[in-house]
Computed example of a mutant assay.
Amino acid sequence: MKPDVTIINDIAKLAGEQILNYYDDDIEVDHKSDDSPLTKADLASHREIVSGLSEHYPEIPVLSEESEIPDYSVRKDWDEYFLIDPLDGTKEFIKKNGEFTVNIAFIENNIPVLGVVYIPAEEVLYFATKEKGAFKQKGDGPIKQIEHDEYNKNEPARIMVSRSHRGSDTNEKLAEMGIEVSEEIPSGSSLKICFVAEGKADLYPRFGPTMEWDTAAADAVYRYSGKNGPVSSPLKYNKEDLHNPEFIIGLA
């Protein structure tokens, strides 16, 4: 049974509630082996998502940032699986600036065909499916389809930049590609890709390290927000090495 995006949306919202249970408290921060931050909220969201997915789709494997990663000899045979980041933007969560998200993607043959990105602090939901396109909803308000125009390389670009992982040479690298930057828009987590998807920015260049779970859900929102149908993305999933290469979202 293929996942129902409405069910996945509800699971993401429940995970967001788990995260907000810790938001007003003094946040205790541990660190993982790669020195990235980890909080109780990350783990509570992870448990909520895995529980929900296991209840509705017990036959579909789940790969989470907060779980043990199966060996590639096992993963390579997965035709479909869920890829989740229970709390993307943990640094933004710790700073309490609201720019953190719950990310759930359904991957089919190494491509995200469904993606849900939820912003708990703002009750904003982005979601997309390959069949129906990309959408945005605030609280219980109306669901609105989102679309973006293809970026014209001859025009100056509005680019998304990371609030916590700013690269100093981004503009220089873009200039070498013939792209002039007209505006830099800072944001945290996977919101940067969603902003490109809804046309608030033209490009999201990322020349620093990211993982597959950081991008998959928002990548689906981007892929299926093209005005003339699905657009291409430079990202692929379920690689032996789960690091993403350098990429630019929004560049055809």
Rank of each mutant, 00 (worst) to 15 (best):
E17A: 09
R47C: 00
P112I: 04
I248L: 04
F135H: 02
K13Y: 06
A220M: 12
L87P: 07
V231T: 09
R223A: 12
A128K: 06
A128R: 05
N171C: 09
G16V: 08
I159N: 03
K173N: 08
A197K: 04
D149A: 15
S189P: 02
S67I: 07
S54K: 13
Y237E: 05
D26K: 12
W78L: 04
F100P: 05
S54L: 06
H165L: 14
R158D: 08
L38N: 05
K239S: 13
K136H: 10
I60E: 11
I146Q: 01
D241I: 05
F135M: 11
E66D: 14
Y204S: 08
G226C: 10
I146N: 03
S232W: 00
E80C: 04
D34P: 09
N154F: 07
Y23V: 06
K239D: 10
T101P: 04
G141R: 09
L203F: 00
P209C: 05
V221K: 03
H243E: 15
D241W: 02
L251D: 06
S73D: 15
E68T: 14
M1L: 07
F82W: 10
V102Q: 13
L191F: 01
E180C: 01
A105V: 06
H56M: 10
V221S: 06
P61E: 11
I84K: 02
I111E: 15
A41P: 07
I193R: 01
G141Q: 11
D10A: 15
N9V: 13
E28H: 09
F247C: 07
G52F: 07
K132I: 08
E198Q: 13
L14S: 13
G141H: 08
P112A: 08
K132C: 09
Y126P: 03
I107P: 02
P120S: 14
K130R: 15
T215Y: 00
V231G: 01
N110V: 03
Q137H: 01
F127L: 13
D30S: 09
M177L: 13
V161S: 02
N97G: 05
R47N: 11
V74N: 04
S233L: 12
F195Y: 14
D34W: 10
R163C: 06
V102T: 14
L43G: 01
K136C: 05
S33W: 03
V221M: 07
G141S: 12
D34M: 14
A201M: 08
F100T: 04
E55S: 13
D169S: 12
S33H: 05
G226N: 10
L235D: 04
H31F: 15
E65V: 10
Y57T: 05
E212V: 00
M1S: 13
E108W: 00
K239G: 12
G115N: 10
G178Q: 10
I107C: 00
E180A: 09
L114R: 09
Q18C: 09
I159F: 01
S189H: 02
I7F: 08
L114T: 15
L235K: 04
S73Q: 12
P112R: 07
I146G: 01
H31G: 06
T90D: 11
A218V: 05
R223D: 11
Y81F: 15
S232G: 14
L191S: 02
K91D: 10
F195I: 05
N110K: 15
V124G: 02
K236P: 00
Q18A: 13
D26C: 00
K40M: 11
E246T: 14
D214A: 10
I159H: 01
E59P: 00
S189M: 02
I49H: 06
K173W: 04
E184L: 02
V221N: 04
